[in-house]
């Protein structure tokens, strides 16, 4: 018998659309009142507090705006291997999201480096449907 204390989450129309997109292998942000594309999307405008509803698909490649090396642990991305936590601004987005970058050592990380999404094969509408980011092949 498994005794558990489960939580569930109602995501609402905006975060729900973002997570559904991940399941489909698509990344969506949302357009703010000042024209910026916010990614991940927010339900309410950070400037005016008005409801936002103009979803925008963004790219699956982007650049690292800052990063920090970490020794891997169980239950973290890449299941125990060392990796970099990074803020990544996807092409077409004006804000950055936090995710893992899979490289062998911190020597391979730099601000401004190009990365792309590595999707999981089995996706369920979760931020970890993006397994991690990896250096964009062919990028300098």
């Amino acid at each position: 018998m498994v005794i558990e204390y489960p939580f569930s989450r109602t995501t609402g129309p905006v975060i729900g659309a973002f997570l559904t997109g991940l399941r489909e292998g698509v990344v969506v942000g949302i357009k703010g009142s000042d024209g910026r594309v916010l990614m991940p999307p927010t339900e309410y405008d950070p400037v005016t507090s008005e409801s936002l509803n103009e979803m925008v698909e963004v790219g699956q490649t982007g650049q690292v705006t800052t990063w920090s090396w970490t020794e891997g642990r169980r239950y973290q991305p890449l299941d125990g291997r060392p990796f970099a936590w990074a803020l990544i601004k996807l092409d077409g987005a004006d804000t950055a999201m936090l995710h893992a970058v899979d490289v062998a050592s911190p020597d391979q990380m730099s601000i401004g480096m190009r990365v792309r999404i590595r999707w999981r094969a089995e996706r369920e509408g979760h931020i970890r449907d993006i397994e991690c980011f990896e250096p964009e092949v062919g990028a300098s």
Binding site: R9, T10, T11, G12, P13, I15, E43, Y44, S51
Partner: peptide, 13 residues
């Protein structure tokens, strides 16, 4: 019982 259409933010809003 369940407001399945809104997030916590949407509910208080």
């Amino acid at each position: 019982s369940t407001r399945g259409d809104v997030s916590i933010a949407g509910l208080i809003r």
